[in-house]
Simulated assay, not measured.
Amino acid sequence: MKSYKDYPRQSVSMSKDDVFQSTLKQIFTENQIDYVIETGTWLGTGSTQTLARAFSPGRLPKAYYTIEGNLTFHTIARFNLLKWPFVKPLWGDTVAKEKALHFIKHDEALLHHEQYADVFIDTLEDPVRFYTNEVEGKLGKNWVISMVDWFGETFLSRQDDLLQNLLIKHRDDRPLVLLDSAGGIGWLEYQTVRDTLGNRPYWLILDDIHHLKHFRSFNDVRTRADFRVIGHSLADGWMIAEHLA
């Protein structure tokens, strides 16, 4: 794999791509989508706001769930998303931490990343440890984040398996699922969506299809007869698809 630091367009967000935005607006104009399930809120200023703005006033969703594992980012996102009352930020793990850690430690693509020459990865130096630290919340820490983490661990109840729980709750509602996953568990999250929703209809958006995160997810979608790829960009790393019943 290649270091993502060397990718010349690494700062480009799918949410800023004009084709991505126009494709979204067309889907939302032609279809009533009542529920959105997103992994990876960050500060709520990227894909979450892009999707929220793409809905026409007369066809707003009933709920847009967006999951963030970092309590500091989740708290900031709640304020940034107040303009859209249908957006429901959730704090917790998309999949159970033990399941995520087991997946990372046994992921063939991570253990043999040198075999995937055209795929980007966040680091080539002990990527298993890097993505383990990411899931455990050890990356990018400062005293503010550490204090907020301590408060959350002491006084709040962190939820886990939020992705699967929401999928089960809304599996008959033809939800739109946006996977802007943590870098090391994108393939795990995609499999969770695919296996939980089964042959039901739904919409799927993947971010970073040229990255370890979702290169396998993208390849799986485009080779399956039960998916229709609506649009994608390898340069900007996104894909929108429809899963057919």
Rank of each mutant, 00 (worst) to 15 (best):
D195I: 05
A241I: 05
D93N: 15
F79M: 03
G183Q: 14
K83W: 04
Y64P: 01
Q164A: 05
R228N: 12
K88I: 01
K5G: 10
R9L: 14
E242K: 15
D118P: 06
G140A: 05
I230A: 08
G44V: 02
N199T: 15
V12F: 14
T154F: 07
D220F: 08
G237N: 08
I230C: 00
F28M: 11
D220L: 06
T29D: 06
V221K: 04
E189G: 00
L124W: 02
A235F: 10
L163C: 06
A54I: 07
H170F: 15
E30W: 07
G198E: 03
D149W: 10
M239H: 15
Y202N: 08
P85N: 00
G198T: 06
V19E: 04
L110V: 01
I104M: 05
A63S: 14
Q10R: 15
V193C: 02
R53M: 14
Q49W: 10
V221G: 12
V19F: 05
H214M: 07
Q115V: 02
A54T: 10
D18H: 09
V144W: 13
L166P: 10
W84A: 08
V119P: 08
H210K: 14
S11M: 12
D160A: 13
T196F: 03
W238V: 02
H232S: 15
E134G: 09
T29Q: 03
I168L: 11
S146E: 10
S146Q: 14
K62Q: 14
V148K: 00
D208N: 13
D18C: 02
H214L: 00
W143H: 11
I185E: 08
K25I: 05
T41C: 07
N219G: 14
H106F: 01
G198M: 00
A109R: 13
